[in-house]
Amino acid sequence: MTDPRQLLIVEDDETFARTLRRSFERRGYAVDSASGHDGLVALLDGGLQPSHAVIDLKLAGSVSGLTCVQAVRAAAPDAKIVVLTGFASIATAVEAIKLGADHYLAKPSNTDDIEAAFARTEGNADTAVDTRQSSIKTVEWEHIHQTLVDTGFNVSETARRLGMHRRTLARKLEKRQVR
């Protein structure tokens, strides 16, 4: 039987992962962590059945945290999954939820924020709807990011689909990193 407080952290920033681990252990969670998709797969293949998971969206290497969301959802269908990212976008939020995440939080988020997301089971219809118009830069960024998601974060293919030079896209991504 699964420990009701078995947490899996998938985070490539060792310092942040260690901080999360300590904080959740103090709150009574049994914590396992992986720095990327391969480590995650090894833990899941070893029989880990997390009840909760915190997954960074942008991991080092070529595999996105979205792939990790799919893997955790397949291995532990009832797990509460929270995706964390330093550079949130509508495109990745939508994809994360479609792939099985329960919540999507922008960094910086602390243990309280993550635990609150674990506890939430329903949406809030009273959430204020922002009537502010998106800027052209925001719309451009969301379009670039959606194309990145569609291409599996392949920069060359994304540049081709957007009709821009790869170096131009790389410069734009450096200014506003996908994480």
Score class of each variant (00 low, 15 high):
T2L: 14
D3K: 15
P4I: 07
R5D: 11
Q6T: 09
L7W: 09
I9M: 00
I9L: 01
E11L: 13
D12Q: 04
D13N: 10
T15L: 09
T15S: 15
T15K: 06
F16T: 04
F16C: 08
R22S: 08
R22F: 06
Y29V: 00
A30H: 00
S33N: 08
D38I: 00
G39K: 00
L40D: 13
L43D: 15
L43R: 15
L44T: 02
G46T: 08
G47I: 05
G47Q: 09
L48A: 12
P50E: 00
A53H: 10
A53T: 04
A53F: 12
D56C: 10
K58N: 09
L66S: 04
R73F: 12
A74M: 09
A74N: 10
A79V: 09
A79K: 02
I81L: 02
V83I: 13
V83H: 03
T85H: 06
T85C: 01
F87K: 08
F87D: 09
A88K: 00
I90A: 07
I90G: 08
A96R: 06
L99N: 06
G100M: 14
H103P: 07
L105K: 13
S109H: 01
S109F: 11
T111W: 10
T111C: 10
E115C: 11
A117I: 11
R120W: 01
G123N: 06
N124H: 03
A125C: 15
D126P: 11
A128E: 10
A128Q: 10
S134I: 01
S134E: 14
S134F: 08
S135G: 13
I136W: 13
I136P: 09
K137C: 02
E142C: 03
H143T: 14
H145A: 04
V149D: 00
D150E: 11
F153V: 08
F153A: 04
N154Q: 08
L162D: 11
L162T: 01
H165D: 00
H165P: 14
R166L: 12
L173R: 00
L173G: 09
E174W: 05
K175V: 11
R176D: 00
